[in-house]
Design a protein around this nucleic acid. Structure first.
Lengths: 162, 162
DNA sequence: AAACAGTCACTGCTTAAGCAGTTAATGCCA
DNA sequence: TGGCATTAACTGCTTAAGCAGTGACTGTTT
């Protein structure tokens, strides 16, 4: 006596119709993996990793003025972020400056060297995305973003589950 | 004098229209992150991680009879896989058996304990996916799979880039 | 048969992420 | 004003992933 599904519209997987290599989870992980690998390859000559690229882009766009901002927006660990910033600072792309208003925080900014690199970073990122979106219509891209945003919202708001 | 785009249909990003938190790359990473976090949380009581769950599911579905298979199908490092299998074996979920036909390979299989756990693993995986696919129509799910598969194909075949 | 390249599982090494705990600074409230 | 919770950045510790290299074994070629 199997229980009937109560809300058929939202039950896409019921525990028996699983094909690992076809499931959304595996596809998603896989796509992320190849995108990062592709980015890493393109960034190799600049001695920058994909993760570092992401942080530089956020700083450049003003999404993250401080380490704490970057951690919140990127769901990143604060300890890891400190060391990430260490690496980027050591390479000369960003610099730290203790805030005068709130002396707990450290303001982050691109150095001239980091600023100079920015166009290339943008170009590489765009190239990688376009490569993976080859033959996508504008509608496809919009739809994909929409679906991903909805998944994100579903995962974020009711974290406790059923 | 900016160069005109040559193939407008496939140029979604041109290096200037970047909003980190809205780009497909960030969305994708983010969705993957919350899905894994969600899976980890649901699996916590079983003392299994999301990565371990993925391997167990693959073995259970016969997608990976050996470590080398699992590495190929999951784009996983062979060294990491050896240790992953160590952990799963130590926990009693799988067991190794040297193949008699080809004595290089080690056959992997679920133990009785692993087999017994399987229904619960399936249930947890399905629950996680359904949670993130809430309010998705069947067409939405199909479309998402289709788009992800196409991205994967784009990233896989021409690895050299432009 | 002997040499050869290729494959499999495994090991040491390096890197980096997450967690827990520390210190300094801030805002709040009695 | 003094105490208290909160926040920011940082530090040690643990875990695990990727890379490079090893030894055992296989199929192939000559």
């Amino acid at each position: 006596m199997k229980k009937e599904s109560r809300s058929p519209a939202t039950v896409h997987y019921d525990g028996s119709n699983y094909d690992p290599s076809e499931s959304i989870g595996f596809l998603l992980s896989r796509v992320k993996l190849v995108m990062v690998a592709s980015l890493d390859a393109d960034l190799e000559s600049l001695d920058i990793t994909g993760a570092q690229w992401a942080v530089l882009m956020r700083i450049a766009h003003g999404c993250g003025k401080t380490a704490a901002d970057l951690c919140r927006d990127g769901s990143y660990d604060t300890g890891s972020m400190t060391r990430m910033i260490d690496r980027l600072e050591e390479k000369g792309f960003i610099h730290r400056e203790r805030s005068t208003e709130d002396r707990r925080v450290v303001q982050l900014a691109l150095t001239d060297q980091g600023e100079a690199l920015l166009p290339e970073l943008r170009k590489i990122g765009a190239k990688m995305l376009n490569r993976h979106l080859k033959d996508f219509t504008a509608a496809d891209v919009q739809k994909l973003k929409d679906l991903l945003r909805r998944m994100l919202a579903n995962g974020t708001d009711s974290a406790d589950g059923a």
